[in-house]
Simulated scan of single mutants.
Amino acid sequence: MPFPLLPAQRELVKAGGAMHSTDLAAALGIRAQELGKLMTRILGEVGISRPGNGTVSPGLGRPLRNGYAAETLAAPIEADRCRAELSAA
């Protein structure tokens, strides 16, 4: 599974399902720009785009800013698991 897909998913779930990019990057110990490059590549490989032009609100009263939602990462995680199963067969 390509980094930072699974650790990002764990952080998003722990945070309630969504995080701003800067907060997620900090939780993963990488720069926000690096997170953006990695996630754009990973999501693009499975044809996923972030809903709402990539904006999320990680909670009631929190502003909409660029970020990620846990459900957005579910598809590339499942795709990676399927690829692993197929290559093991």
Results as ranks from 00 to 15, higher is better:
Met1Thr: 08
Pro2Asp: 14
Phe3Met: 07
Pro4Leu: 10
Pro4Gly: 13
Leu6Pro: 00
Leu6Tyr: 08
Pro7Thr: 12
Ala8Asn: 06
Ala8Arg: 05
Glu11Cys: 15
Glu11Tyr: 10
Leu12Gly: 12
Val13His: 09
Val13Glu: 15
Val13Phe: 08
Lys14Gly: 06
Lys14Pro: 00
Lys14Gln: 10
Gly16Trp: 06
Ala18Gln: 01
His20Gln: 05
His20Pro: 05
Ser21Trp: 03
Thr22Phe: 04
Thr22Val: 12
Leu24Asp: 02
Leu24Pro: 00
Ala25Arg: 02
Ala27Gln: 14
Ala27Pro: 10
Ala27Asn: 14
Gly29Leu: 04
Gly29Ala: 09
Ile30Asp: 14
Ile30Ser: 14
Arg31Asp: 15
Arg31Leu: 13
Gln33Phe: 07
Glu34Phe: 13
Glu34Thr: 15
Leu35Arg: 06
Gly36His: 05
Gly36Met: 09
Lys37Phe: 14
Leu38Arg: 09
Met39Gln: 04
Met39Ile: 09
Thr40Ile: 05
Arg41Cys: 11
Arg41Asp: 14
Ile42His: 04
Gly44Ile: 01
Glu45Arg: 13
Gly47Thr: 02
Ile48Asn: 00
Arg50Ile: 07
Arg50Met: 11
Asn53Ser: 14
Gly54Glu: 06
Thr55Asn: 14
Val56Met: 08
Ser57Phe: 03
Pro58Asp: 00
Gly59Trp: 03
Leu60Trp: 08
Gly61Phe: 07
Leu64Ser: 12
Leu64Lys: 15
Asn66Arg: 08
Asn66Thr: 03
Gly67Ala: 13
Ala69Gly: 13
Glu71Lys: 12
Glu71Leu: 12
Thr72Arg: 00
Thr72Tyr: 02
Ala75Lys: 12
Glu78Pro: 03
Ala79Leu: 03
Arg83Pro: 01
Leu86Val: 01
Leu86Arg: 13
Ser87Gly: 00
Ser87Thr: 01
Ala88Cys: 06
